[in-house]
Amino acid sequence: MARPKTLPDDHYRLSTYKRGSKRYVYGYRNVWDPVRRQSRSAKRFYVGVLNEVTRQVRPCQRFLANHPEYEGKVLYYENHELIEKR
């Protein structure tokens, strides 16, 4: 029996990785592969650079072009989400 689809197609999750002295934020979305019966990466994209002390994210231009709702906002990375604080 196939798994029910629980999230919309435009939903993505956020995570981080460290390379050198910088930590980067990226978004990803997985899909279920019924043949191999495991999750596979469907889409992965770069969000921006994370300041580890303040947890503020400096988004890249490509991310802002694809997600204009974040334009001009101060973003923070908390609990695997982008949060806008004032």
Rank of each mutant, 00 (worst) to 15 (best):
M1S: 11
M1H: 09
A2N: 10
R3K: 15
R3Y: 13
P4A: 06
P4C: 00
K5S: 11
P8V: 14
D10V: 01
D10N: 08
D10S: 12
H11D: 13
R13W: 03
L14S: 00
L14A: 00
L14M: 05
L14W: 00
S15K: 01
T16N: 08
Y17N: 12
K18E: 08
K18L: 02
R19I: 15
G20T: 10
G20C: 14
K22Y: 06
R23G: 02
Y24A: 03
Y24H: 08
V25K: 01
Y26R: 01
G27N: 04
G27H: 05
Y28E: 02
N30V: 08
V31G: 15
V31S: 14
V31M: 11
P34M: 06
P34E: 15
V35L: 14
R36Q: 11
R37K: 11
S39E: 13
S39T: 14
R40D: 10
R40A: 13
R40M: 15
R40I: 15
R40T: 12
S41E: 13
A42H: 09
A42G: 12
K43I: 05
R44N: 10
R44P: 01
R44G: 07
R44E: 07
F45P: 00
V47Q: 01
V47W: 01
L50S: 03
N51D: 14
N51F: 01
E52P: 06
E52W: 04
E52F: 02
V53N: 09
V53T: 12
T54F: 15
V57T: 00
V57M: 03
V57W: 03
V57A: 04
P59A: 03
C60F: 04
C60E: 08
C60A: 06
C60I: 13
R62G: 13
R62T: 14
R62V: 15
R62A: 14
F63I: 10
L64G: 06
L64I: 05
N66F: 02
N66Y: 09
H67T: 04
P68A: 04
P68E: 06
E69H: 08
E69M: 12
E69N: 04
E69R: 15
E69T: 12
Y70L: 07
K73R: 15
V74R: 13
Y77L: 09
Y77V: 03
E78H: 08
N79Q: 04
H80S: 10
L82M: 07
L82W: 08
E84T: 15
E84Q: 15
R86L: 11
